[in-house]
Design a protein around this nucleic acid. Structure first.
Lengths: 391, 391
DNA sequence: TTTGTTAGTAGAGCGTCCTTACAAATTCGT
DNA sequence: ACGAATTTGTAAGGACGCTCTACTAACAAA
């Protein structure tokens, strides 16, 4: 493995709003602006970048030269297709193949999955590691081993490692609590970074997915991802920024009560006990195990009716959130055969019927199947964002 | 290298995260940092500011000199109370009396209320203007007249006008829709600014109150204000930033359904028709008129029971929002005799019983009575934030 | 060939902050 | 009492970043 780069890449505007801003921060910001433009718009000319960012051509040339010097950007020859007056533009584009990112998804209780990806989130190699019930420091060791595997599998310099993990995780990558992994107050990012010598970024798995959807999903800057797996979680991006919440516990929507005694009085199923110690939580009806139990052995019609019933519960919980935040989009992330059909439709129509037309009308609700590379792409975005400032 | 996730740089007023950053923006940001420190911490020395902001003493001296030149800051003599080694510090403090802010609250359907305030939000003069049912351009004219009155009443230079208005309002102060005032797509801020020659900032009244609570309420950076008046609205501040939502309609929580047919089946009151055309909205039970009707002529005990019943409805709607955002604080803004007692307690206990302990335990729910100067203070914060970058 | 337009670069200039150095004023140690 | 240490605030010089102006290069249209 070569070193990541000769110079430490640290463009990410990792600045708290109450921190001072120096000229070099401004430059880093503008550099990220240029890179983000190339990332999203593909190869363009320096002049195009200047028009798009508002910077002068001179400054853009300077920034692009810097980026070329670090091999993040390359000249791609002269733009074809004449017909335009003036000197033809020299195209410059991001070198998405010149660096690699290591992305790891810890969502699954049984096995850690990871991949080596290009800067465009194309998978170059995959590795997995079985947890075999290990928790605490042993689980960290398994994770570190997987990361070493992946680093060894990378054929280009690795700019960083992105990890999506269940649990409550703060902005510095400290896992405050992840009961399923036995992690409480584990400075995961710092430990792995010290051990591996590569920048490491860790965030909640649902938050990571929300970042991925924000970057690759195409919708506006206000979205919520509901992850439906062993448990139920959520990640929220508002105005382009991840919501963290007071104690970094934003998105913990799995344990909102959606079934109570009133349901019993109306002849519906009673609230089920939840791992959190209470009963009737969203997770007791919406988690994948709960859904599978509910539809096991039923005919398609009955199954759909059951899924729709769960969808209505979800809609009940989502309606106030969608209203209060004026969300543009809710993404359901889970097995498509469970969440893609009647469940999604019932949830959407419930939200629409329980909110103002102006709120519900424009709301999109779509599915993103877990198990594909959405989670890994999100982890890659974590690195892109943290190391290069690209979102 | 630390591993924080990306966070948008906020360089003072009117800078979107995707815009270029020039050295002068950096300076404006640092200037605001100095001013904000003086605003929140009171008079201190230049060296203290340097330690607190991370800037050097040299730079702080320069910035302070600039602020003194604009009369926003003044030297206040040498710090008393010895006991500390070294040269005694010269205190500098914000000149809160040297400028005035005009704040206007349009929440009330009958009359506009406004005040001239110092930079510390102390009221210097008050004025009101009756609407007498006027809407549209005539209502704008009444508002403009009130602003002129207030400008004339100011005895110091006015740095700006802050207006909190019902309705959906975008970041540029365009009232997209305010049915009660008959405003649809009215560029209120721009029109008043052109007519009055003073910077004008307009925002939704609930959002304005949320800003005020964020600045003066003392709690953390994640709070929600629920305004309970003619209608029901909400404003949300997350990580120190106002949530706007996809179409600037964030906070429109008044028209979430909280009463439906199920309640009828359980022998509870049927959903009431709502002005929005649907039925059972939160506003149909929580608005001040609805509350007054509900408790009219009842004994204190019966009244409390009714208020608690409404509080539970509110709690039902708030629980998912509090969970999803990990809010630190919910502020109920309305007549204290209605929302301060049983209603608040029922809402809080409902939220607690329907969310994870870690979410509900630390949640604060308090009241802020409308009709006092909270709304006006919020409008003043709008100006402080917009003109001076102080929040 | 001339004119006009667009792309990209060079040099000078201005703004911003930092580092280093220094003067002033006070307390502490002996 | 008196120097040493400490703290505050300022001044000079330098590094960095962006812009403005001016220039060359390359093309289309007249």
């Amino acid at each position: 493995m070569t070193t990541t780069t000769s110079r430490a890449i640290r463009l990410g505007p990792a600045l708290r709003p109450t921190e001072k801003v120096l000229p070099e921060h401004a430059r880093a910001h503008n550099r990220s602006l240029v890179l983000a433009h190339l990332f999203h718009s593909g190869p363009t000319s320096r002049a195009d970048i200047a028009r798009s960012t508002g910077l002068t051509r001179v400054t853009v040339s300077d920034l692009v030269a810097e980026l070329i010097g670090e091999n993040l950007v390359a000249e791609l020859g002269v733009r074809a297709g004449g017909g335009r007056v003036g000197k033809p533009a020299t195209l410059v584009g991001m070198q998405t193949e010149a660096f690699h990112i290591v992305a790891v998804d810890l969502t699954d209780d049984a096995a850690l999955t990871g991949a080596v990806m290009t800067l465009a989130s194309d998978v170059v190699a995959r590795r997995t590691a079985a947890l075999d019930g290990r928790t605490g420091d042993e689980a960290v060791a398994v994770l570190e081993g997987l990361c070493r595997d992946l680093l060894a599998a990378a054929t280009q310099p690795v700019i960083g490692i992105g990890i999506g993990s269940p649990g409550v995780i703060d902005a510095d990558g400290v896992v405050l609590e992840a009961p399923n992994r036995g992690w409480f107050g584990v400075p995961l990012a710092a430990r792995l970074q010290a051990a591996l010598g590569v920048p490491v970024h860790v965030a909640n798995d649902a938050n990571v997915q929300a970042l991925g959807e924000y970057t690759y999903g195409g919708a506006g800057g206000s979205l919520m991802v509901v992850t439906i797996g062993q448990g139920v979680g959520a990640g929220i991006v508002l105005d382009g920024a991840l919501v963290r919440g007071r104690h970094d516990a934003a998105g913990e929507i799995g344990h909102v009560t959606v079934v109570d005694e009133r349901d019993v009085l109306l002849g519906e199923p009673a609230p089920l006990p939840c791992v959190c110690g209470r009963a009737g939580c969203l997770e007791t009806v919406l988690s994948v195990p709960a859904l599978r139990r509910r539809v096991a052995g039923l005919s398609p019609e009955d199954s759909d009716a059951q899924l729709a019933s769960v969808g209505r519960k979800l809609g009940l919980a989502l309606a106030p959130v969608v209203s209060a935040l004026n969300l543009a989009e809710v993404v359901l992330s889970g097995p498509r055969e469970l969440v893609g059909g009647a469940l999604r439709e019932a949830a959407l129509s419930t939200v629409r019927s329980r909110t103002m037309p102006v709120i519900g009308r424009d709301l999109e609700m779509r599915t993103a199947s877990i198990g594909e590379d959405r989670a890994l792409s999100g982890a890659a975005v974590l690195v892109l964002s943290g190391q290069l400032g690209v979102t």
